[in-house]
Design a protein around this nucleic acid. Sequence first.
RNA 1: GGGCAGAUAGCUCAGUCGGUAGAGCAAAGGACUGAAAAUCCUUGUGUCGGCGGUUCGAUUCCGUCUCUGCCCA
Length: 307
Amino acid sequence: MERRAIVIVGPTCSGKTSLAINLALKLKSEIISADSRQIYKYLNIGTAKPSVPELNTVQHHFIDCFDPTELYNVSRYEKEVLKTLYILFDKNIVPVIAGGSGLYIKALVDGIVDIVDTDDEYRIELLKLKIEDGNEALYELLVKTDPVSAETMLPQNWKRIIRALEVYKLSGKFIWQLHEEQERNVDAEFIQYGLKWDREILYENINNRVDNMIESGLVEEVKTLLDKKYSPELNSLNTVGYKEIISYLQNEITLERAVELIKRNTRRYAKRQMTWFNRDKRIKWIEINSANQLDNIAEFIYTDVYK
RNA sequence: GGGCAGAUAGCUCAGUCGGUAGAGCAAAGGACUGAAAAUCCUUGUGUCGGCGGUUCGAUUCCGUCUCUGCCCA
């Protein structure tokens, strides 16, 4: 039996959602979201989550699964998606995976180091070291324990340093060793397509979408979350569109400024996504400069997959 | 019509006592393996508004024109 999945990537606001639905309908398939924020409940407007009618059109997985207090991560995602994938493969379905979280997709396609868990206590200890003695102290510790990894990391990038130290403490192995030993965790073919927009048009669309989000009640959505006593410190709320509105609600900036920042930060996010995806030479890029082309693109992918 | 103040990077401006210029923002490029919408790194050549003049040399001084803003008629 052939195990195949279609993967749709691209920057935020590139039309992945509607393309995935369109394709899934043609393929009589289901959609697996690869989005680290749409997986949370109540984060709807700001994450541009598919609408309720859209969610009802095609079966979606990994959307609206967790409370914002939940600490989610790539490894959990990978393990859970693999289970879902096998269920779909068994039903002879070609799943449509769509999303903008590059690392999540990479974890599926190439596997990820998932034998080493997290150590929250140790993380806190290291974080304390960073805060009290600075990035350099943290970096020095890495130089001592894992000089090879230290070579590839800068002292300022404390998140990567903490993870490298954590992996060593928990497994006694260096993180780079584990990367070298890493193998794929699934036996399937992933056919990846990327939506490549003209930069200027994409940015214009992003700006417009942010304005629409505000009109649709993004401020209310964030206010409701805070009223429900969700902490602004939550990772789930450390998200473009949410952190800026939180800062507005806490009277740190004006709404106008918040909107400006959301637009800018979304543009930068889109750019980072493009940088990430550009590196993967297996992705087939499809040029697009208007949402009207999405139907044709769905048709193209459909025939491309079955050619 | 007259007066004054401007015109320098995509934007807002600084600066050069004459030796062709630099900040902030925007932007661009990149890294990334359990927080990834996270976290982090690198990057500033632009007819210094046009044309003339003075000068070895003008973006800088002078003249003039154009445009913008303000004021007076």
